[in-house]
Design a binder for these strands. Structure first.
Lengths: 338, 338
DNA sequence: ATGGTTAATGTTATCGATGCCATTGGCTTG
DNA sequence: CAAGCCAATGGCATCGATAACATTAACCAT
């Protein structure tokens, strides 16, 4: 199992392999890179030498010479949320499948200097491309301001082409569901205004509602946390006639339901609640939360796909449909007949 | 803001800087690395040249020459759970503070080949050290089987020295709390048996209970998901006399409470429930979940600290106390007097 | 002044892989 | 059989930073 290079304390190089196989370093290099025109006999000798020595190419040397790394930088703020996490998982797996590795850098703040620092790091590490997972307006602005020749994917829409993002399809599905249940006066509990995913969910929700003849009566800006949901519940005015609320993520939805319960407002009898993310806990809160189950993993795949296409200057592979799904549970019900 | 190197299409090198400043490349290199003995006048000339050219050291070249990278590999399975996520955050910030960057690699499976693949990647990237975040027995075995000269931190206890891990102190605190409430017959809802953190939480919980004269009547093995909690609720035998259950994470605790509610078993009147992780949602489920709030961030810091000490062969910095805290909420109450 | 120190800086070779060009040998073609 | 051609392989320079060693300058003591 362990390669027989215990005698030398330095890892084997192309030259070691070459001299062992009786060929030149160049031939070894070619074989490693998958060059076809090598005589079978030679090929085999080199192959064995590689195995015997446990040779692995030195990435630093290769990068120095070729200037092409096979690393992709992923810039993400709240990487530990369900959504970004799944995006990353999809992205990592897609990258790996194409021989790239994903370099995840989490930033704590969304201020310019944090962002710049992360991008600087990517430049120093000479990543082949950058995938910006978290999307706020500031981030987008900072990224676009830097003129760099590293390919960057900033906008999920960019990568999905004509296909709606999870936010778009999710917002629409939430609206359709609530419309079908007869709700006509609704509220929206959003993430911070400068977060694009929140805006996406909101816009598609609004548009679909308007098309169905319903009205958005109130909108509360949140910060993705359950606390924000609880505050919204306090701010909620029962006389507004709102019978359903769409929250931009489950955490806020859960906080919201908790706050409503404290005020004696029954879910779903008086107010229906729809969340977004379908976190595992959503099915186990009381009442069980109706939620949009987004396919973030495919969204991440799409993004990397588009990014790689740009890096390697080839047309993007056929796009996978992200396909969100609405999971209907106990937190939504027919609109109370006023 | 943008450095004036637009005219040349290649990024500036030490030589470019050197010739611009009228010194040798070596001097530039020394300055960049923070060498002290450079005459102020020279230093300033070089400094300006660096800024004017927007020079950044080429990491690949440096790594090739020095064989010392400033990257740390972090191997993690379920990176998107709250716990590992916070460990990573702490680890990343500690690493950054010491001039290292954290290379997070998530693996999907816990089988030998996934692990090996990830470790191979680390070796090829010549990371300075490896931090194994997720800890199962298999992982530990695979890691220890590979003889590699890269420093590795596998065991959190290793990095914390004499200080109890969050799992140890958390399990103990849960036990003390329940003992104080008069509970004497208890259950434990664990993670998979081969996960060390689960075992830690369990052991410290058990030990403290025994010391307090209580008995562990039942133990359910779970898989960290709320579903596992729900199954445990089904398996729960009301005639067992169990009045309190400690779940190894909040997700399972939430599933458990949901399952108990379905069976009409009241929490905390009949059964108290304590979780672990204190996820943001914990405070907003009904009843609000009493949970151990672990200081994973500091645990991550400690680990990186210990790792860096080993890498740089210096004594570890004073250790930060992880300090878990028990957040008491509505899911725990006095034991019902039988 | 002369040798001896030390501080500041310069020279050269090297890390490992690979792009570019040169070479070799076998085979086809007229 | 010579000319021509292609397939397979080798030689050399290079990517950018730095370790190791060499040099210069400046200053001191004798």
């Amino acid at each position: 199992m362990v390669p027989d290079n215990a005698h030398s304390d330095r890892p084997a190089t192309v030259h070691d392999v070459a001299s062992r196989a009786g060929v030149s370093a160049q031939t070894v290099s070619r074989l490693v890179k998958g060059y076809e025109g090598i005589r079978p006999a030679t090929r085999e000798r080199v192959q064995t030498a590689i195995e015997e020595l446990g040779y692995r190419p030195n990435r630093a040397a290769r990068l120095l010479r070729t200037r092409r790394s096979n690393r992709i930088g992923a810039l993400v703020h709240n990487m530990f949320e369900r959504g970004p996490g799944q995006l990353l998982r999809g992205a990592a797996s897609e990258a790996r499948a194409s021989g790239y590795s994903l370099n995840i850098v989490g930033i704590d703040g969304l201020d310019e200097s944090s962002i710049d620092e992360a991008l600087d790091l990517f430049e120093e590490e000479q990543v082949a491309g950058i995938f910006v997972v978290t999307l706020t307006e500031e981030l987008r602005a900072v990224v676009q301001r830097r003129s760099s020749d590293i390919p960057i994917i900033v906008d999920p829409a960019e990568s999905a082409g004509p296909i709606p993002t999870t936010g778009e399809s999710g917002g629409r599905m939430a609206a359709q569901h609530l419309l079908a249940l007869g709700h006509r006066r609704l509220g929206f509990l959003g993430g911070p205004r400068e977060w694009l995913p929140s805006e996406q969910r909101k816009e598609s929700f609004f548009i679909e509602l308007l098309r169905g003849g319903a009205t958005v009566v109130a909108e509360w800006p949140g910060d993705w946390t359950p606390e924000a949901g609880a505050s919204a519940a306090q701010a909620f005015d029962p006389r507004s006639g709102i019978t359903a609320i769409f929250a931009a993520n489950d955490a806020m939805a859960i906080g919201l339901m908790h706050g409503l319960a404290l005020r004696g407002i029954r879910v779903p009898a008086e107010v229906s609640v729809v969340g977004f993310d379908d976190i595992p806990e959503a099915a186990y809160v009381i009442p069980e939360l109706t939620s949009v189950h987004p396919n973030f993993e495919d969204e991440g795949r799409n993004a990397i796909n588009a990014l790689l296409a740009r890096i390697e200057q080839r047309p993007p592979s056929p796009i996978i449909h992200p396909g969100s799904e609405l999971i209907v549970r106990g937190s939504t019900g027919p609109a109370p007949s006023a």
